[in-house]
């Protein structure tokens, strides 16, 4: 493993371990996600909306709102005790810190999805998709979560240095995430409705978005965390 890779792994492991040891943070995020799915599914039971169309919307709105809880902890925790300064001096590369945090946030979102998806599947009573389409749903979940993690980490890195970070974070995050949300909902819906061919355009859009919001901040993060 290269020096860069090792540092990336160490920060990732530390972030994930910290998240697990402060179990109340992770638990509150997951419980909030479960509550959203339950409330949405009850609401949809009372309407005539087709469940296969509602499923992806319920799923992604739940993931989207829940993710803001965990994403805004990313740099806020580091700022609280100024561990970010010690971390940057030891790592020597702000981009490496960004990438490790994106990966740690992605892992948290995947864990969250692992709880929310089966729950939504049961509560909304979606008809089983074929194994191929279930794979496409997983791909859509992974790419959507990647986008959320990348943009959330970037915005948290920017806002954590400003006054009123709790207000600014969602205000800046939501408009930027609109393409991810649209792409994720439509690709997930296509996977559930087993119309796989129509989802590839959205999958490519998500992939492009994810790459741009991972690579560009990686280069520019020196300026984000400066000061």
């Amino acid at each position: 493993m290269t020096g860069y890779g090792l540092k990336l792994w160490l920060i990732y492991k530390k972030d994930f371990l910290t998240e697990l040891r402060t179990a109340d943070s992770l638990l509150s995020t997951i419980i909030f996600g479960i509550m959203l799915v339950v409330i949405f599914s009850f609401a949809f039971q009372l309407t005539d909306v087709a469940v296969d169309k509602a499923f992806a919307a319920v799923l992604w709105i739940s993931i989207f709102f829940t993710s803001t809880l965990s994403l805004q902890r990313s740099f806020a925790n580091e700022k609280e005790n100024d561990t970010i300064s010690a971390l940057l001096l030891a790592v020597g590369d702000r981009g490496c810190v960004f990438l490790a945090k994106v990966l740690a946030n992605l892992t948290t979102l995947v864990l969250l999805a692992a709880v929310i998806v089966p729950l939504a599947w049961i509560l909304i009573d979606v008809q089983a998709a074929g194994p191929n389409h279930f794979g496409l749903l997983l791909l859509s979940l992974l790419l959507g979560s990647w986008g959320l993690a990348a943009v959330g980490t970037l915005i948290n890195g920017i806002t954590v240095q400003l006054a009123g970070t709790r207000l600014l974070f969602p205000l800046l995050l939501f408009p930027l995430l609109v393409p991810v949300l649209i792409g994720s909902i439509l690709s997930s819906t296509a996977a559930i409705q087993q119309t796989g061919a129509s989802m590839w355009g959205w999958i490519y859009l998500l992939l492009c978005f994810d790459l741009i919001y991972t690579v560009v901040p990686l280069i520019l993060f020196d300026y984000v965390l400066e000061g």
Partner: peptide, 26 residues
């Protein structure tokens, strides 16, 4: 560069040895 501030700059959820090992490995 070693930087010590009036804030401890440590991870409160991690143990004493985990903190030390984390920074040393970096």
């Amino acid at each position: 560069i070693g930087y010590m501030s009036h804030k401890p700059m440590l991870y409160e959820a991690l143990s004493v040895v985990d903190n030390l090992e984390f920074f040393a490995r970096l």
